[in-house]
């Protein structure tokens, strides 16, 4: 017997099951009613409040003030190189163009990982957001490379109300065919040295989350 057959046989012996044994339905008490959402504005406030508690910087930015907000961010974080998702949403906001105008060198999100690691800023959208925990969910697709939110020192995520979901369940149902996604809840953190919470271990040292209004 090979390892696979042996393990499966051992499992079945231990459980007194056979391969054609029926699988009992999962009981109703193993299911939890989803959280009831508030209106979109309150949900967005909750999301921002939770991210704020974790050390993320949140804000609502008017469409015509994006340039000013980016200029402030670029200055604050000394951004020299940046990369961003190739999505229509970010294109429409003109983020790439503004960054170039601000003298920031743009790196293609398809660039080699070392080039990505040299970026100071990575700009992404947000596919889903969960207000209860302050969590952003980002999918990985050809126009949404994984490394944009991972390697740059600063992560800026643009969230819109349509991304809000009261609970994890609906989002899982919508993306279950994907091969990868990530939950981001605040900037990278650790308490491994004397339990002192330290922000920015391996991932983003700073997280900005903006809603463009």
């Amino acid at each position: 017997m090979n390892a696979r057959e042996q393990i499966l046989a051992d499992v079945q012996n231990a459980l007194h099951r056979t391969s054609d044994a029926p699988v009992a339905a999962i009981s109703a008490s193993a299911r939890i009613a989803p959280r009831t959402p508030d209106d979109a504005n309150a949900e967005m406030n909750m999301l921002f409040e939770e991210i704020g508690k974790l050390g993320g910087a949140t804000g609502r930015v008017k469409k015509n003030e994006i340039k000013a907000a980016l200029e402030k961010l670029v200055k604050e974080q000394e951004v020299k190189k940046a990369t961003l998702w190739n999505t229509g949403e970010l294109e429409e906001l003109g983020i790439a163009q503004i960054l170039t105008e601000l003298g920031v060198q743009l790196v293609s999100p398809l660039a080699d990982k070392r080039a990505m690691a040299e970026c100071d800023l990575g700009v992404t959208g947000v596919d889903y957001a969960f207000p209860e925990t302050g969590t952003l969910m980002l999918r990985a697709l050809p126009d949404k490379p994984r490394a944009v939110s991972l390697l740059p020192r600063v992560h800026l995520a643009i969230v819109s109300p349509s991304a809000l979901r009261a609970d994890l369940g609906p989002a899982f149902a919508e993306v279950r065919g994907d091969n990868y996604w990530i939950f981001i809840t605040g900037p990278s953190r650790t308490a491994d040295i004397e339990l002192t919470v330290t922000i920015g271990v391996h991932g983003a040292k700073a997280l900005y989350v903006w809603q463009v209004i």
């Binding site: 939770e50 974790l54 398809l110 990982k113 969960f130 209860e132 925990t133 302050g134 969590t135 990985a140 697709l141 050809p142 126009d143 949404k144 490379p145 994984r146 490394a147 994907d178 091969n179 990868y180 996604w181 990530i182 939950f183 981001i184 809840t185 605040g186 900037p187 990278s188 953190r189 991932g203």
Partner: peptide, 22 residues
């Protein structure tokens, strides 16, 4: 005591496209 950990990854097999990375 966190409502959610900072990063939770969901991985199904290897990358599907070269563009997404992984």
């Amino acid at each position: 005591g966190q409502k959610m950990s900072a990063y939770t990854s969901f991985i199904t097999g290897p990358r599907r496209s070269n563009e997404e990375g992984g």
